[in-house]
Design a binder for these strands. Structure first.
Length: 553
RNA sequence: GUGCCCGUAGCUCAAUGGAUAGAGCAUCAGCCUUCUAAGCUGAGGGUUACUGGUUCGAGUCCAGUCGGGCGCACCA
């Protein structure tokens, strides 16, 4: 609808002689009595013109040239809002577009020719995925889906590191547990991974090799096997949630020299040094963030000679620019919040356009059972495992619950609620609407021979519909394309969940108030088309969210 | 101590600086001889944590206070 209104308003402002540098915004009033759409442009422009906003609005209105039979009424209300009321005919006519476009409805090509990279999950293979990671995973996946609907060429990337200190500890942990399997007495440090999965890996090694590697000091053996097993399990877990990555970027490639014999990490140091942002003391190499007003400098290369995580992080982001991505999205949890400002600063210093980088940070997840909050404790062995959650509530509920709250809110995952097969559970409310339509269409085919695929010529029957329930439902369907754009702009799939919920509600109301199969033939058909269009939008929306669309329940 | 996020109905959460702050659940009252009642209709429920400020207009922006979460490593 943006495409419909904005040009007309723009022209009207011009011909009414109103100039303003404020962007025109189209909003949907919370109350329908203020119209289907509304703009506050007169309020904004009034100040610059030094005019009374209501008078200004009155002057703009005669210049608004909408096509005939589209906008029924234009009012000035409140402090100077211009409110638009669409005709039912226009609304129902537009529903035809939904049916014509089908799976493509809501898609756009504004991103055509642009490359976007969305990085998410990015957990190192030191243990199974936790519930907290799951939220970021689903969030990232949905964001990638949103970009795809707008025609962007999207890469879903997983950044990981199988070297470094954490992996070292992993190897040691497995080795110690293995020695226990061999009957040796060991002391297991509290700094090491306590989880049961370590024991399982050790037992596997024991069953493969027996005691033959007992004397081995080759930590790599344990590390490699552990990494392999853990990574496989991570990917399996992600697979259960339909999360796929196109690209797995190993941090280690940033350490190895390129064709000119220089490692990416080293290049970063060299370039930053040229910009005079590098210094050395205490045996380490520092990024001079104090020059940028920060309290402390940040270590880029430790006194041991190894880079700290920050250096490869910068180098990694440079590769995103070098690989030609126009939009770079990073999804990560609140625990990484302090990480990105340094990376951005470094990129800015090196001349990269950091406006292309968008950060989506999701807050943490707490789970509640019977109203009791289970505190997540990291890597203590009792961490909440994503797999257990999926076992418990299923993939659809897992995905939907993760994104049905804003990413900034601390998510409270009510496990009992997610398991409930009743209307309290939003997953079922949404899916039920879809299943109900499917059932209706099956019945229609049986009783009246209605066939959705060969009745396109009759789409115009939709224009017969004009009851409030029908028009409101139709209106909501038209809103879908704008909703995708809003969701994408805000990197917030939750908007889509909310929209689909209200769509389901409008359908149930329509279904309740308007008899379909019992109506006279033309009306019956028209209402079936409206139902069909609703099902289409639900499906398209579910696809973005990665939730299944059951045909019956 | 400090950086970021949050504080809105009994509970879980919405509200691109806009109009009388909205949904769902829970509670109460209605609706199935009728296409899936896993549904619909209606009612009650609020000093948007607090105090100031910015402006035509603040839940939203700014400052401060209080409360909760997550970080603050030469770990990632």
């Amino acid at each position: 609808m943006l495409e419909f209104f904005l040009p007309v308003i723009q022209k009207a402002l011009y011909s009414a002689g109103v100039t303003t540098d404020k962007p025109i915004r189209l909003e949907q009033p919370s109350d329908k009595k203020f119209g289907d759409f509304s703009t506050n442009i007169a309020l904004l422009a009034a100040k610059e013109c030094r005019r009374n906003p209501r008078e200004l609005a009155q002057e703009i209105i005669p210049h608004l040239a909408f096509p005939p039979d589209t906008v029924a009424r234009i009012d000035v209300a409140g402090a100077g809002f211009i409110n638009f009321y669409l005709t039912p005919l226009f609304i129902m006519h537009s529903v035809e577009q939904v049916l014509q476009d089908g799976d493509k409805y809501g898609k756009d090509s504004i991103g055509k020719g642009q490359k976007a990279i969305v990085e998410y999950v990015s957990a190192n293979p030191t243990g199974p995925l936790t519930i907290g990671r799951g939220r970021g995973g689903v969030l990232g996946d949905c964001i990638a889906n949103l970009f795809e609907t707008q025609g962007y060429e999207v890469t879903r990337e997983y950044y990981f590191n199988d070297a470094g200190r954490q992996m070292q500890i992993l190897g040691e942990s497995v080795q110690l547990r293995y020695l226990e399997c061999c009957g040796k007495e060991t002391e297991f440090p509290t700094t090491h991974y306590q989880g049961e999965y370590i024991r399982e890996i050790a037992e596997k090694i024991y069953s493969l090799h027996g005691t033959t590697v007992e004397k081995s000091n080759d930590l790599n053996l344990f590390k490699k096997i552990a990494e392999e097993i853990i990574f496989t399990s991570i990917r399996k877990t992600l697979e259960r949630l339909s999360i796929h990555h196109d690209s797995f970027f190993n941090e280690h490639t940033l350490y190895t020299p390129d064709t000119q014999g220089v490692a990416a990490n080293q290049r970063v140091i060299d370039k930053l040094r040229k910009k005079e942002f590098i210094t050395e003391y205490d045996g380490a190499v520092w990024f001079l963030t104090t020059k940028l007003g920060q309290e402390k400098d940040k270590v880029l290369i430790k006194s041991s000679g190894e880079p700290s995580y920050r250096l490869p992080d910068i180098a990694y982001h440079i590769t995103k620019f070098e690989r030609g991505y126009d939009i770079i999205v990073n999804v990560f949890g609140a625990d990484h919040i302090d990480e990105y400002p340094d990376v951005l600063e470094a990129l800015k210093i090196l001349g990269y356009d950091t406006d292309r980088i968008k950060i989506a940070i999701n807050q943490f997840v707490t789970t509640t059972v019977d109203g009791q909050t289970l505190k997540m404790s990291t890597r203590k062995g009792n961490a909440d495992l994503l797999d257990d959650l999926i076992d418990d509530v299923g993939a659809d509920a897992t995905r939907l619950f993760f994104i049905m709250r804003g990413k900034d809110s601390h998510l409270n995952f009510d496990i009992e609620l997610a398991k409930k097969q009743s209307k309290e559970n939003p997953v079922f409310y949404l899916q039920y609407a879809h299943a109900r339509i499917c059932s209706l269409l099956r019945m229609a085919q049986q009783e009246t021979g209605f066939n959705p695929s060969d009745s396109a010529a009759d789409y115009q029957l939709l224009r017969l519909l004009n009851s409030p329930e029908e028009v409101q439902l139709g209106f909501a369907l038209l809103d879908y394309p704008d909703m995708i754009k809003t969701s994408l702009r805000m990197l917030e799939p939750q908007k889509m969940v909310e929209y689909l919920h209200s769509l389901a509600e409008l359908f149930h109301r329509f279904y309740q108030e308007c008899p379909i199969l019992k109506a006279e033939p033309d009306i019956c058909k028209a209402r079936l088309f409206l139902s069909l269009a609703t099902r289409q939008v639900l499906r398209n929306g579910f696809r973005i969210l990665g939730v299944s669309a059951p045909e019956s329940m």
